[in-house]
Amino acid sequence: MDLRIREIFGNFGGTMAHEAGSYRIGYDAKRVFHNFTGLGNYSRSLLMYLKTYYPQHAYHLFTPSVKKNERTAPFLDPAQFSLHQPSAMPGGWWRTFGLGSALQRAGIQLFHGLSHEIPRGLHKTSVKSVVSIHDLIFRRYPQLYSPIDRQLYDWKFRYACRHAGRVVAISESTRQDILHFYGLPPSRVTVIYQSCDARFLQQVDETERNRVLAHYGLPQDFMLYVGSVIPRKRLLQVVQALRACRHALPLLVVGAGKAYLQKVKTYLRQHGLEKRVFFPGPVDFRDLPALYQAARMLLYPSVYEGFGLPAIEALFSRTPVITSSLSSLPEAAGPGALYVDPDQPESIADAMDRLLDQPDLAAALAEKGYQHVQKFHPQTTTTQWMQLYEELIESGG
Protein backbone atom coordinates (compact mmCIF):
# COMPACT_ATOMS: atom_id res chain seq x y z
CA MET A 1 0.00 0.00 0.00
CA ASP A 2 2.88 2.37 0.81
CA LEU A 3 4.29 1.94 -2.71
CA ARG A 4 0.89 2.42 -4.35
CA ILE A 5 0.32 5.71 -2.52
CA ARG A 6 3.70 7.00 -3.65
CA GLU A 7 2.95 6.00 -7.22
CA ILE A 8 -0.35 7.94 -7.14
CA PHE A 9 0.73 11.12 -5.37
CA GLY A 10 4.50 11.15 -5.65
CA ASN A 11 7.01 11.33 -2.84
CA PHE A 12 6.28 14.46 -0.85
CA GLY A 13 8.86 13.74 1.85
CA GLY A 14 11.22 16.51 0.74
CA THR A 15 8.73 19.37 1.01
CA MET A 16 6.42 18.06 3.72
CA ALA A 17 8.91 16.64 6.19
CA HIS A 18 9.44 18.07 9.66
CA GLU A 19 12.93 19.54 9.66
CA ALA A 20 13.60 19.46 13.41
CA GLY A 21 13.88 15.68 13.61
CA SER A 22 11.61 12.75 14.21
CA TYR A 23 8.71 12.33 16.59
CA ARG A 24 7.47 9.30 18.49
CA ILE A 25 3.70 9.23 18.01
CA GLY A 26 1.37 6.68 19.58
CA TYR A 27 -2.09 5.56 18.46
CA ASP A 28 -5.04 3.68 19.85
CA ALA A 29 -4.98 1.01 17.15
CA LYS A 30 -7.75 -1.32 18.31
CA ARG A 31 -9.95 -0.48 15.33
CA VAL A 32 -7.04 -0.70 12.91
CA PHE A 33 -7.03 -4.43 13.58
CA HIS A 34 -10.67 -5.16 14.36
CA ASN A 35 -12.95 -2.77 12.48
CA PHE A 36 -13.28 -3.06 8.71
CA THR A 37 -15.83 -0.35 8.05
CA GLY A 38 -15.89 3.36 8.95
CA LEU A 39 -13.65 3.80 12.01
CA GLY A 40 -11.21 1.14 10.90
CA ASN A 41 -10.96 2.57 7.39
CA TYR A 42 -10.32 6.04 8.81
CA SER A 43 -7.56 4.74 11.08
CA ARG A 44 -5.79 2.62 8.48
CA SER A 45 -5.89 5.29 5.77
CA LEU A 46 -4.58 8.05 8.02
CA LEU A 47 -1.75 5.90 9.37
CA MET A 48 -0.64 4.79 5.91
CA TYR A 49 -0.67 8.35 4.58
CA LEU A 50 1.32 9.58 7.57
CA LYS A 51 3.89 6.82 7.14
CA THR A 52 4.13 7.47 3.40
CA TYR A 53 4.41 11.26 3.48
CA TYR A 54 6.34 11.54 6.78
CA PRO A 55 8.49 8.39 6.99
CA GLN A 56 11.03 10.02 9.33
CA HIS A 57 8.69 9.75 12.32
CA ALA A 58 8.17 6.67 14.51
CA TYR A 59 4.56 5.43 14.59
CA HIS A 60 3.62 3.23 17.55
CA LEU A 61 0.38 1.21 17.53
CA PHE A 62 -1.19 0.21 20.85
CA THR A 63 -3.86 -2.49 20.70
CA PRO A 64 -5.19 -5.19 23.03
CA SER A 65 -5.03 -7.79 20.22
CA VAL A 66 -4.57 -8.10 16.48
CA LYS A 67 -6.42 -9.73 13.62
CA LYS A 68 -4.24 -10.75 10.71
CA ASN A 69 -5.53 -10.28 7.17
CA GLU A 70 -4.65 -8.48 3.93
CA ARG A 71 -5.84 -5.12 5.24
CA THR A 72 -3.94 -5.27 8.53
CA ALA A 73 -0.72 -6.78 7.15
CA PRO A 74 1.06 -3.42 6.59
CA PHE A 75 0.54 -2.50 10.24
CA LEU A 76 2.20 -5.71 11.41
CA ASP A 77 5.38 -4.88 9.48
CA PRO A 78 7.99 -3.85 12.08
CA ALA A 79 9.84 -1.87 9.42
CA GLN A 80 6.86 0.49 9.23
CA PHE A 81 5.13 0.42 12.62
CA SER A 82 5.97 -0.55 16.19
CA LEU A 83 3.32 -2.75 17.79
CA HIS A 84 2.52 -2.71 21.52
CA GLN A 85 0.18 -5.12 23.33
CA PRO A 86 -0.57 -5.77 27.02
CA SER A 87 1.58 -8.41 28.71
CA ALA A 88 -0.71 -9.32 31.59
CA MET A 89 -3.49 -6.77 32.13
CA PRO A 90 -6.82 -7.58 30.38
CA GLY A 91 -6.97 -5.79 27.05
CA GLY A 92 -10.01 -3.60 27.66
CA TRP A 93 -8.78 -2.50 31.08
CA TRP A 94 -5.27 -1.86 29.73
CA ARG A 95 -6.60 0.26 26.88
CA THR A 96 -8.48 2.55 29.29
CA PHE A 97 -6.40 2.53 32.47
CA GLY A 98 -2.98 1.06 31.65
CA LEU A 99 -2.14 2.70 28.39
CA GLY A 100 -0.80 5.92 29.90
CA SER A 101 2.04 4.07 31.59
CA ALA A 102 2.75 2.07 28.44
CA LEU A 103 2.99 5.27 26.41
CA GLN A 104 5.48 6.78 28.86
CA ARG A 105 7.64 3.62 28.85
CA ALA A 106 7.73 3.74 25.05
CA GLY A 107 8.86 7.38 25.09
CA ILE A 108 5.78 8.57 23.20
CA GLN A 109 5.61 12.35 22.75
CA LEU A 110 2.05 12.56 21.39
CA PHE A 111 -0.90 10.17 21.59
CA HIS A 112 -3.70 10.24 19.02
CA GLY A 113 -6.98 8.64 20.03
CA LEU A 114 -8.29 7.74 16.59
CA SER A 115 -11.87 7.03 17.64
CA HIS A 116 -13.35 9.08 20.47
CA GLU A 117 -11.17 7.91 23.37
CA ILE A 118 -7.98 8.67 25.26
CA PRO A 119 -6.58 6.75 28.26
CA ARG A 120 -7.60 7.82 31.72
CA GLY A 121 -5.04 10.02 33.46
CA LEU A 122 -3.01 10.75 30.34
CA HIS A 123 -3.29 14.51 30.90
CA LYS A 124 -1.31 14.07 34.13
CA THR A 125 1.72 12.75 32.23
CA SER A 126 4.18 14.40 29.86
CA VAL A 127 2.48 12.78 26.84
CA LYS A 128 0.55 15.27 24.73
CA SER A 129 -2.75 14.16 23.23
CA VAL A 130 -5.31 14.69 20.48
CA VAL A 131 -8.57 12.86 19.89
CA SER A 132 -10.63 12.37 16.73
CA ILE A 133 -14.39 12.66 17.22
CA HIS A 134 -16.37 11.24 14.32
CA ASP A 135 -19.98 11.80 15.32
CA LEU A 136 -22.35 12.14 18.23
CA ILE A 137 -25.14 9.99 16.89
CA PHE A 138 -25.87 8.62 20.35
CA ARG A 139 -26.68 12.17 21.47
CA ARG A 140 -28.62 13.25 18.37
CA TYR A 141 -30.58 9.98 18.09
CA PRO A 142 -30.56 8.46 21.60
CA GLN A 143 -33.48 6.18 20.75
CA LEU A 144 -31.13 4.12 18.58
CA TYR A 145 -29.03 3.08 21.59
CA SER A 146 -29.63 1.26 24.83
CA PRO A 147 -29.39 3.34 28.02
CA ILE A 148 -26.20 1.59 29.11
CA ASP A 149 -24.53 2.17 25.73
CA ARG A 150 -25.49 5.85 25.81
CA GLN A 151 -24.00 6.22 29.29
CA LEU A 152 -20.80 4.42 28.31
CA TYR A 153 -20.30 6.46 25.14
CA ASP A 154 -21.02 9.71 26.94
CA TRP A 155 -18.52 8.81 29.68
CA LYS A 156 -15.78 8.14 27.11
CA PHE A 157 -16.54 11.06 24.79
CA ARG A 158 -16.94 13.60 27.59
CA TYR A 159 -13.67 12.55 29.19
CA ALA A 160 -11.76 12.72 25.90
CA CYS A 161 -13.20 16.11 24.99
CA ARG A 162 -12.34 17.57 28.38
CA HIS A 163 -8.82 16.18 28.73
CA ALA A 164 -7.33 15.86 25.25
CA GLY A 165 -4.90 18.61 24.31
CA ARG A 166 -6.91 19.16 21.14
CA VAL A 167 -10.20 17.77 19.86
CA VAL A 168 -10.48 17.17 16.11
CA ALA A 169 -13.87 16.80 14.46
CA ILE A 170 -14.06 15.15 11.05
CA SER A 171 -16.62 17.72 9.85
CA GLU A 172 -17.96 21.13 10.81
CA SER A 173 -21.27 19.44 11.57
CA THR A 174 -19.59 17.19 14.14
CA ARG A 175 -17.68 20.18 15.52
CA GLN A 176 -20.95 22.01 16.14
CA ASP A 177 -22.36 18.94 17.91
CA ILE A 178 -19.29 18.78 20.16
CA LEU A 179 -19.62 22.46 21.07
CA HIS A 180 -23.35 22.05 21.69
CA PHE A 181 -23.29 18.91 23.84
CA TYR A 182 -19.98 19.31 25.68
CA GLY A 183 -19.60 23.08 25.91
CA LEU A 184 -15.95 23.25 24.87
CA PRO A 185 -14.29 26.55 23.97
CA PRO A 186 -14.42 26.80 20.15
CA SER A 187 -10.64 27.26 20.00
CA ARG A 188 -10.11 23.72 21.34
CA VAL A 189 -12.07 22.00 18.55
CA THR A 190 -10.51 21.85 15.09
CA VAL A 191 -11.90 20.37 11.86
CA ILE A 192 -9.66 18.08 9.82
CA TYR A 193 -11.67 16.30 7.18
CA GLN A 194 -11.39 12.62 6.49
CA SER A 195 -9.83 11.36 3.28
CA CYS A 196 -10.38 7.97 1.68
CA ASP A 197 -8.27 5.00 0.71
CA ALA A 198 -5.86 5.54 -2.18
CA ARG A 199 -7.70 2.89 -4.21
CA PHE A 200 -10.58 5.31 -4.79
CA LEU A 201 -8.29 7.85 -6.43
CA GLN A 202 -7.21 5.48 -9.19
CA GLN A 203 -9.03 4.90 -12.46
CA VAL A 204 -10.09 1.27 -12.92
CA ASP A 205 -9.59 -0.03 -16.45
CA GLU A 206 -12.41 -1.66 -18.39
CA THR A 207 -10.99 -5.18 -18.02
CA GLU A 208 -10.89 -4.92 -14.24
CA ARG A 209 -14.34 -3.35 -14.07
CA ASN A 210 -15.83 -6.16 -16.16
CA ARG A 211 -14.07 -8.75 -14.00
CA VAL A 212 -15.59 -7.29 -10.84
CA LEU A 213 -19.08 -7.08 -12.33
CA ALA A 214 -18.87 -10.68 -13.54
CA HIS A 215 -17.53 -11.89 -10.21
CA TYR A 216 -20.61 -10.61 -8.39
CA GLY A 217 -23.06 -11.43 -11.19
CA LEU A 218 -23.95 -7.77 -11.77
CA PRO A 219 -25.36 -6.00 -14.83
CA GLN A 220 -23.39 -3.29 -16.63
CA ASP A 221 -25.87 -0.57 -15.62
CA PHE A 222 -26.98 -0.04 -12.00
CA MET A 223 -27.39 2.36 -9.10
CA LEU A 224 -25.32 1.90 -5.94
CA TYR A 225 -25.89 2.03 -2.18
CA VAL A 226 -22.86 1.66 0.13
CA GLY A 227 -23.16 1.58 3.92
CA SER A 228 -24.52 -0.32 6.86
CA VAL A 229 -28.16 -1.28 6.39
CA ILE A 230 -29.59 0.55 9.38
CA PRO A 231 -32.62 2.84 9.76
CA ARG A 232 -30.89 6.24 9.73
CA LYS A 233 -29.37 5.56 6.29
CA ARG A 234 -32.88 5.16 4.82
CA LEU A 235 -32.42 2.19 2.48
CA LEU A 236 -36.11 1.35 2.91
CA GLN A 237 -37.05 4.72 1.46
CA VAL A 238 -34.61 4.10 -1.40
CA VAL A 239 -36.25 0.80 -2.38
CA GLN A 240 -39.66 2.40 -1.99
CA ALA A 241 -38.46 5.02 -4.46
CA LEU A 242 -37.80 2.26 -7.00
CA ARG A 243 -41.56 1.84 -7.39
CA ALA A 244 -41.99 5.51 -8.25
CA CYS A 245 -38.91 5.80 -10.49
CA ARG A 246 -39.79 5.76 -14.19
CA HIS A 247 -36.65 3.77 -14.99
CA ALA A 248 -36.18 0.08 -14.19
CA LEU A 249 -32.49 0.39 -13.38
CA PRO A 250 -31.43 -2.12 -10.71
CA LEU A 251 -29.92 -1.22 -7.34
CA LEU A 252 -26.78 -2.77 -5.86
CA VAL A 253 -26.60 -2.78 -2.04
CA VAL A 254 -23.12 -3.09 -0.53
CA GLY A 255 -23.47 -3.33 3.22
CA ALA A 256 -24.51 -5.58 6.07
CA GLY A 257 -27.52 -5.39 8.33
CA LYS A 258 -29.77 -7.35 10.65
CA ALA A 259 -33.38 -6.60 11.55
CA TYR A 260 -33.63 -3.54 9.31
CA LEU A 261 -32.17 -5.47 6.37
CA GLN A 262 -34.89 -8.09 6.81
CA LYS A 263 -37.49 -5.31 6.85
CA VAL A 264 -36.14 -4.05 3.52
CA LYS A 265 -36.18 -7.53 2.01
CA THR A 266 -39.74 -8.10 3.24
CA TYR A 267 -40.83 -4.93 1.46
CA LEU A 268 -39.14 -6.08 -1.74
CA ARG A 269 -40.94 -9.46 -1.62
CA GLN A 270 -44.29 -7.87 -0.88
CA HIS A 271 -44.01 -5.56 -3.90
CA GLY A 272 -42.34 -7.90 -6.37
CA LEU A 273 -39.07 -5.96 -6.44
CA GLU A 274 -36.65 -8.75 -5.52
CA LYS A 275 -35.10 -8.81 -8.99
CA ARG A 276 -34.52 -5.06 -8.94
CA VAL A 277 -32.14 -5.15 -5.97
CA PHE A 278 -28.86 -7.07 -5.72
CA PHE A 279 -27.46 -8.11 -2.34
CA PRO A 280 -24.06 -9.65 -3.17
CA GLY A 281 -23.05 -10.26 0.43
CA PRO A 282 -19.50 -9.40 1.54
CA VAL A 283 -17.67 -7.39 -1.13
CA ASP A 284 -13.88 -7.39 -1.24
CA PHE A 285 -12.67 -3.90 -0.35
CA ARG A 286 -10.36 -4.01 -3.38
CA ASP A 287 -13.40 -4.33 -5.66
CA LEU A 288 -15.24 -1.24 -4.37
CA PRO A 289 -13.53 1.29 -6.69
CA ALA A 290 -14.71 -0.65 -9.75
CA LEU A 291 -18.28 -0.69 -8.41
CA TYR A 292 -18.28 3.05 -7.69
CA GLN A 293 -16.90 3.84 -11.14
CA ALA A 294 -19.37 1.52 -12.90
CA ALA A 295 -22.44 2.88 -11.07
CA ARG A 296 -24.70 5.54 -12.58
CA MET A 297 -25.13 7.17 -9.18
CA LEU A 298 -24.64 6.66 -5.45
CA LEU A 299 -27.81 6.70 -3.33
CA TYR A 300 -27.00 7.88 0.19
CA PRO A 301 -30.01 9.70 1.73
CA SER A 302 -28.88 9.35 5.35
CA VAL A 303 -30.38 11.52 8.07
CA TYR A 304 -27.13 11.78 10.05
CA GLU A 305 -23.45 11.16 9.32
CA GLY A 306 -20.33 12.34 11.04
CA PHE A 307 -18.87 12.89 7.59
CA GLY A 308 -20.31 10.66 4.84
CA LEU A 309 -17.30 8.84 3.41
CA PRO A 310 -19.22 7.00 0.63
CA ALA A 311 -20.11 10.38 -0.85
CA ILE A 312 -16.48 11.38 -1.33
CA GLU A 313 -15.53 7.88 -2.52
CA ALA A 314 -18.20 8.25 -5.21
CA LEU A 315 -17.12 11.75 -6.18
CA PHE A 316 -13.45 10.79 -6.40
CA SER A 317 -14.79 8.11 -8.78
CA ARG A 318 -16.62 10.82 -10.77
CA THR A 319 -19.99 9.29 -9.89
CA PRO A 320 -22.82 11.71 -8.95
CA VAL A 321 -24.53 11.40 -5.58
CA ILE A 322 -28.10 11.57 -4.29
CA THR A 323 -28.08 12.43 -0.61
CA SER A 324 -29.80 14.53 2.05
CA SER A 325 -29.03 18.07 3.15
CA LEU A 326 -28.76 16.96 6.78
CA SER A 327 -25.80 16.90 9.19
CA SER A 328 -22.42 16.78 7.43
CA LEU A 329 -23.57 15.50 4.04
CA PRO A 330 -23.55 18.89 2.25
CA GLU A 331 -19.95 19.31 3.43
CA ALA A 332 -18.96 15.96 1.95
CA ALA A 333 -20.91 16.06 -1.31
CA GLY A 334 -20.90 19.79 -2.01
CA PRO A 335 -22.00 20.60 -5.58
CA GLY A 336 -21.65 16.98 -6.68
CA ALA A 337 -25.07 15.89 -5.43
CA LEU A 338 -28.79 16.24 -5.80
CA TYR A 339 -30.29 16.80 -2.35
CA VAL A 340 -33.51 15.05 -1.34
CA ASP A 341 -35.87 14.64 1.58
CA PRO A 342 -34.68 11.27 2.98
CA ASP A 343 -38.13 10.47 4.38
CA GLN A 344 -39.96 11.00 1.09
CA PRO A 345 -39.48 8.21 -1.49
CA GLU A 346 -41.02 10.45 -4.14
CA SER A 347 -38.24 13.00 -3.61
CA ILE A 348 -35.61 10.28 -4.02
CA ALA A 349 -37.36 8.87 -7.12
CA ASP A 350 -37.50 12.33 -8.70
CA ALA A 351 -33.74 12.74 -8.23
CA MET A 352 -33.14 9.28 -9.75
CA ASP A 353 -35.20 10.21 -12.80
CA ARG A 354 -33.42 13.54 -13.21
CA LEU A 355 -30.00 11.91 -13.33
CA LEU A 356 -31.15 9.13 -15.65
CA ASP A 357 -33.08 11.49 -17.96
CA GLN A 358 -30.37 14.14 -18.08
CA PRO A 359 -26.90 12.67 -18.71
CA ASP A 360 -25.48 16.18 -19.06
CA LEU A 361 -26.68 17.00 -15.53
CA ALA A 362 -25.15 13.78 -14.19
CA ALA A 363 -21.83 14.55 -15.88
CA ALA A 364 -21.83 18.13 -14.59
CA LEU A 365 -22.49 17.01 -11.03
CA ALA A 366 -19.75 14.39 -11.28
CA GLU A 367 -17.21 16.95 -12.50
CA LYS A 368 -18.19 19.59 -9.92
CA GLY A 369 -18.10 16.94 -7.23
CA TYR A 370 -14.67 15.74 -8.33
CA GLN A 371 -13.31 19.26 -8.06
CA HIS A 372 -14.99 19.71 -4.67
CA VAL A 373 -13.44 16.60 -3.10
CA GLN A 374 -9.91 17.73 -3.87
CA LYS A 375 -10.15 19.52 -0.50
CA PHE A 376 -10.23 16.01 1.01
CA HIS A 377 -7.18 14.87 -0.96
CA PRO A 378 -4.81 12.81 1.24
CA GLN A 379 -1.95 15.24 0.72
CA THR A 380 -4.06 18.07 2.13
CA THR A 381 -5.52 16.23 5.12
CA THR A 382 -2.24 14.54 6.06
CA THR A 383 -0.41 17.86 5.98
CA GLN A 384 -3.02 19.32 8.32
CA TRP A 385 -2.56 16.44 10.74
CA MET A 386 1.21 16.75 10.81
CA GLN A 387 1.01 20.50 11.33
CA LEU A 388 -1.27 19.88 14.32
CA TYR A 389 1.06 17.21 15.71
CA GLU A 390 3.99 19.63 15.43
CA GLU A 391 2.03 22.40 17.12
CA LEU A 392 1.06 20.21 20.07
CA ILE A 393 4.50 18.65 20.54
CA GLU A 394 6.57 21.78 20.06
CA SER A 395 4.35 24.12 22.04
CA GLY A 396 3.40 21.69 24.78
CA GLY A 397 -0.33 21.96 23.87
Rank of each mutant, 00 (worst) to 15 (best):
Q56C: 06
F36N: 12
G26R: 09
T37R: 11
F36K: 08
F36Q: 11
N35K: 04
T52H: 08
I25N: 00
M48D: 06
H57S: 07
R44S: 09
T63K: 00
H57R: 08
L46C: 03
Y53C: 09
G26I: 05
L46V: 05
N35T: 12
K30E: 12
G40D: 02
G40H: 04
Q56T: 03
Y49F: 11
N35S: 06
A58T: 14
L39K: 15
M48H: 08
F36G: 10
V32I: 01
M48P: 01
F62M: 01
P55V: 10
Y59H: 09
Q56W: 06
N35V: 06
S65Y: 09
A58P: 15
L50D: 05
G38E: 13
P55R: 10
A58V: 15
I25P: 00
Y27G: 01
Y42H: 06
M48W: 08
M48I: 05
S65F: 03
S45K: 03
L46G: 01
P64V: 06
D28R: 14
Y27F: 13
Y54N: 10
Y42Q: 03
Y27C: 05
K30C: 03
A29M: 09
L61M: 05
N35P: 02
L50V: 05
M48R: 14
Y42C: 01
Y49S: 08
S43R: 02
F62T: 00
N35I: 05
H34M: 12
P64A: 13
G38L: 10
Y27H: 07
L50G: 04
A29L: 13
H60R: 13
A58Q: 15
K30R: 09
S43D: 02
S45V: 09
R31P: 05
K51S: 15
A29V: 08
T37I: 11
P55D: 09
I25C: 01
D28A: 13
Y54R: 13
S45I: 04
Y59F: 14
L39A: 15
S65E: 12
L47G: 03
H57C: 09
S43C: 05
N35R: 04
Q56L: 06
H57F: 10
